[in-house]
Nucleic acid binder design. Structure first.
Lengths: 141, 141
DNA sequence: ATAATCCCGAGTTGCAAACTCGGGATTTGT
DNA sequence: ACAAATCCCGAGTTTGCAACTCGGGATTAT
């Protein structure tokens, strides 16, 4: 039940871009250094974020990446969707065919509850809530 | 964000024992066959369940395992706790030391929300809700 | 006695996630 | 015009750990 480092890195990178918003495009190198992420790996991940139109790139010298929209409009679920292609606790809950037990799988009730609970959190949490010096953090728990 | 097969197997095994309750001890072999779990692997897992006092063993010929208590009293969280030793989305939310960022980790808000949501579901779901021909399943969603 | 089971510490295997590499395309600064 | 800094991307390679096996001892019913 761990989040992959892919996901962790992607979220940290997006938060970083939110924090640096307005300061011009941020290079992969800079983001990687600030957030402590292997540079070439991040390059790969941020490519997925770009394809999902969550960030925009500026090429050439002094280029880099910027958030495509305001942090208040970006849901964490969008980030993870882009990077993982959906966050499901077990394949079972996704497609009934994937599970040999078919409809007769009693524990499916549990998978569905878990998926709901998780997706609810991811959908309701906006990037803006995760940036530094957000002093109202505590009440939002 | 997947559940490990350890967890999946353990839950299926516990559900199986709930379904076979009252029919005498169930051998690992029988459970494995019914639930489609590699036998020797299950033996390992069920050992953890026994140490956590969730099941009781009867040794010798015609031996096997039985639920230690009624399925209405066993929480899914107990099963996963026994098998995984806690279900945390990221180490960060567990101990502040584990994360180099320390207290200044903005995304921690997210980890905490996720952990809460997940633990809530696991804690509220009883084994009895997961057995077959539980016809009120749908409303419980 | 024999067979069926639990019990358990050590393996071994496989595979996907994590990370690297090489090199091309684009833009800026000088 | 050229060098340097970046994005871009398809192919690697590495590696950690979950998943699974093995061998053999202890216990009990028939």
């Amino acid at each position: 039940m761990k989040l992959s480092s892919r996901s962790l890195y992607a979220i940290h990178a997006m938060v970083d871009l939110a924090e640096q918003r307005g300061l011009g495009p941020q290079s992969v190198k800079a983001i990687a250094a600030r957030q402590n992420i292997p540079e070439q790996y991040l390059e790969q991940l941020i490519g997925s974020l770009r394809k999902a139109k969550l960030v925009e790139s500026v090429r050439g010298m002094n280029g880099g990446y910027e958030l495509a929209g305001g942090p208040e409009e970006i849901r964490v679920s969008e980030v993870l969707e882009a990077i993982e292609g959906g966050v499901r606790v077990t394949e079972c809950a996704l497609s009934k065919d994937a599970c040999a037990r078919g409809e007769n799988c009693a524990p499916r009730l549990l998978w569905e509850r878990l998926n709901r609970a998780i997706e609810n959190v991811l959908h309701e949490t906006m990037l803006s809530e995760l940036v530094q010096n957000n002093t109202i953090q505590e009440e939002l728990l």
